[in-house]
Design a protein around this nucleic acid. Structure first.
Lengths: 338, 338
DNA sequence: AAAAGCTGTCGAAGCGCTTCGACAACCTAT
DNA sequence: ATAGGTTGTCGAAGCGCTTCGACAGCTTTT
């Protein structure tokens, strides 16, 4: 393995000079710089990560905690992870992948060992056990998601409340009055994962304001669960003409069942989905949807951290404004047409 | 930040003694050990990762290179990544997430900088540019996937050739004679990603042996692409009664289109999928499938590496035997029933 | 012409840990 | 009782880097 000292010798300068060429923290004459860079290239030198971390107290690593369970939003998680990794590289950081498995201990371990300079947490519960630890350390962190109390924290998330409102507004504008919400699996609500409840808040508040009737049913993914849920909905409120779906794995079952029951989309019922664009465009009906900007969230989180690590940036909550794209799954409410 | 020296002082021993308590590399009396462990707990000590890496030339980190593109097998990638991360932790390793973006440079960077002790590579091309680099370093690595030349490499993968054969056998046993393969997107074949071609090899070889006729059509995911592909297949070979699907995002479109055309599954046509179990059980028809053992591959890869890093283990190719689970999408060929 | 200020480079200290050799203290075999 | 082992602990060196202070050699100011 090539060391700094070897590069220095090869270039005929001292070790510190090479270090300053690398870091740019002191001015170096053009000729010396070139000579050093040449030596670096010729010898194929890569600075040793451990030594660097030890000497500078900076690992240039960002830790990313992803949820262990894969009961929801797998493609979203993946997209975020990839966006985080690629964005981090452009800022000179690598990404350490931690699963939720260790729980709060992972936070202790990472901050205590100096393994990473900063952390990104996903799958944040409203009252997450990791939050006190984050508040008690001076290591920067960003949450993707929104806990109940955001004081002293930096968060990035889609504005799910506005998302809920937006879905309702779109359906209202089309004349729908009775709408049903196919929610996430019950477990997601029990866990108090913020986004599900916030969406529901938005849906409820706006539908009330607009004088609409709303039915909310959590739903596991898959056909059987969906069949039961759908039957119940039409049983309780046969006049339902609008659906909002917030569960990727319920989308296709819902469409198939509606089709099977002879209810045409969008002529008889309209469906709005809250899902990544990819799902919306690949479904059997091209879905009107509010997209989940996974990449943007991941990128934003890293940029916040990079700013904080540079001494810039501060704590703030960034809620990304939802955007609804009209596709082929929504249309005027049937009663509104005559 | 608490240091080894502070722990040593607190426990009234030397730094090296604390180090040996931690590593277990020399015998320590029970009383001393307990005193040290007590101090560690009281002070909340975590060894500094950088210092440890520098002194021991071991980072206790495994690098995982995942593909940047998300055009296939997203849930599989995710499952592998999670399995790798959790298994790594049980062996005392953390996982560094690298995307394919950097290409071969990532390998150079990681091995050169001592960032990681070992690497796991996914999305391996038949003639991958990273392979020469891996062969030229003494850093252990494992490929998830199979390149053309495996000399000097350790690989883990599903035995896709046997998988292809198994699918054909199952359909043959049910009396099907004309079968169609809905393959991965054309780009996957062009990239020469081994698994797709190996599956095809297995399908072709076994169907020839069994005197069956086989049609192979690559297919992008989604409804439109599937509609075109399916039309072409029934056009060219109307007698087709068996399908093998190797593209998750083609599964649901295929089923929907068949249903729409009045072809009952499994009465008129049978469908065998090659996909994770989760997809097979959540589809609109419970699919007979060969599962992709993502977790097992991830776990196995880490265990191979852990063994190598312990000086045990050696280069070998492990092909996991496919298992076909019969569900509700396959049945006797229609002509075979009378 | 002296003082003051830059610029570019160097030497040395030290980051927190692992690990090697040394050695005291004890135990066992002769 | 002595030589030869064990066992448990310590001190010191050193891993490869960053960074601070020093300073030589300039240029600019007074």
């Amino acid at each position: 393995m090539v060391t700094l000292a070897e590069v220095a010798q090869h270039a005929g300068v001292s070790a510190s000079t090479v270090s300053y060429v690398l870091s740019g923290k002191r001015s170096i004459s053009a000729t010396t710089r070139q000579r050093v860079e040449q030596s670096i290239r010729e010898l194929g030198y890569h600075p040793n990560a451990g030594a660097r971390a030890l000497a500078s107290s900076r690992s240039n690593i960002i830790a990313l905690m992803i949820p262990l369970r894969t009961d929801m939003y797998v493609p979203v998680m993946m997209e975020i992870a990839i966006a985080v990794a690629t964005t981090a590289r452009t800022h000179g950081y690598d990404v350490l992948l931690l699963t939720g498995e260790e729980g709060p201990d992972a936070v202790r371990r990472v901050t205590g060992s100096g393994l990473a300079d900063a952390m990104i947490l996903m799958d944040v519960q409203l009252d997450d056990e990791r939050l006190p630890l984050l508040r008690g350390t001076d290591q920067p962190s960003v949450l993707i998601g929104l806990p109940a109390d955001t004081a002293g924290l930096t968060c990035v998330d889609l504005d799910f409340k506005a998302t809920g409102a937006l879905c309702v507004e779109h359906l209202a504008m089309l004349g729908h009055r009775d709408i049903a919400v196919i929610g996430e699996a019950p477990a997601v609500y029990e866990r108090h994962t913020g986004f599900a409840e916030r969406t529901l808040d938005g849906l409820r508040a706006r539908s009330q304001e607009l004088g609409m009737r709303l039915l909310h049913r959590p739903c596991e993914g898959g056909y059987d669960a969906m069949a039961v849920t759908l039957a119940r909905i039409f049983d309780e409120r046969p006049s339902t003409t609008g659906f909002v779906v917030q569960n990727e794995s319920a989308v296709e079952p819902l469409l198939a069942l509606l089709r099977q029951q002879g209810r045409a989309v969008p002529e008889d019922v309209s469906v709005v989905a809250i899902c990544p664009d990819q799902v919306a465009t690949q479904a059997s009906v091209r879905l009107t949807s509010v997209s989940i900007p996974a990449q943007e969230m991941g990128r934003h989180a890293v940029e916040q951290l990079a700013a904080k690590l540079d001494g810039r940036g501060s704590d703030e909550v960034v809620l990304i404004a939802p955007e609804l794209t009209v596709r082929a799954s929504t249309g005027p409410a049937p009663t509104a047409t005559h």
